[in-house]
Design a binder for these strands. Structure first.
Length: 273
DNA sequence: CGGTGGACCTGCTGGC
DNA sequence: TGCCAGCAGGTCCACC
């Protein structure tokens, strides 16, 4: 579900309401997520204060005064919402963290592809999938030159390169497709065939598209909600994603959908070559 | 090593 | 109305 703009929106919503709050109670209703929720979870959280909320790629990091870090990944259908404790719970609310503010943080995830891990701060970098994450798209080291060097010799399609978290951390299928529309490159093109100029354009476009999506609080086309359980708005601004058969907003031709692997890619065959 | 395809889950939609 | 196939924002692992 949530890609970088959605995760960033959630973090921005949570930071001011969680900072300095103390956890008074923890309920784990469903342990079977992508990894089982570990047994010490409740004991290590209860009574502790939250010091900060951060994002790395699509991961949410909730830092505690104890140097423990609660790491969450929302998978495809996860939500992390901050609500009044009195609000009725819903099906698929898996982890409930009660705060001294009278509110609760609820991790909700119908498909259970998400991840919840509690680690010591220093263990973070040792997490294999975490250690291998590429640059953040807003990192100044994420340049055309960097992306160009990674695409040399790569027979993969450019859409697949962009959603590879080792290349750049935080892009998923929606934003990879949107970025490629703005860079005027078809998602199906083999990465090695792209010249310097095109790769430069992709790298420059990436943070621009993401920044705009963050301004609109992310994309909700079904599950995604922000920290206060509100919809995002960026779905109104999508150029290609989920628009098969609709008119391109630039040239009025019909948007096409093709399968790359098991996932859809969307493009305008006139605007994108 | 690089690349692909399926598995993991639930829920929703559209066709018959 | 019901049933079934196909599809969904992600990641990981087995296999070539």
């Amino acid at each position: 579900m949530p890609e970088l703009p959605e995760v960033e929106t959630i973090c921005r919503g949570l930071r001011p309401v969680l900072r300095g709050r103390r956890i008074t109670q923890v309920d784990v209703l469903q342990k079977q997520l992508r990894c089982p929720v570990d047994l010490g979870f409740d004991g290590r959280l209860r009574g502790k204060a939250i010091s900060d909320v951060a994002r790395r790629g699509k991961y949410i990091l909730i830092r505690l005064e104890t140097e423990d870090v609660w790491i969450l990944h929302l998978g495809m259908s996860g939500k992390l919402i901050h609500v009044k404790a009195a609000k009725p719970r819903e099906k698929h609310d898996h982890i409930i963290v009660r705060l001294d503010s009278g509110c609760e943080l609820r991790y909700h995830d119908p498909r259970r592809f998400g991840l919840s891990l509690l680690l010591r701060h220093q263990e973070l970098a040792e997490l294999p999938q975490f250690g291998r994450l590429g640059f953040d798209p807003f990192d100044r080291r994420f340049t055309g030159q960097y992306l160009y060097s990674l695409t040399r010799g790569s027979r993969r399609r450019i859409r697949d390169v962009l959603i590879d978290q080792r290349v750049v951390a935080g892009l998923g299928n929606i934003y990879a497709n949107e970025i490629l529309f703005h860079a005027r490159v078809r998602p199906t093109v083999r990465a090695w065939r792209l010249g310097r100029g095109k790769v430069q354009e992709i790298a420059e476009t990436t943070p621009k598209v993401l920044r705009k999506a963050i301004l609109w609080c992310g994309t909700s086309f079904s599950d995604y909600r922000d920290a206060e359980d509100r919809l995002g708005e960026f779905q109104k601004h999508l150029r290609v994603y989920d628009r098969e058969g609709e008119k391109c907003r630039v040239c009025r031709n019909r948007i096409k959908r093709v399968a790359i692997g098991n996932r859809s890619a969307f493009y305008c065959s006139f605007c994108q070559k």
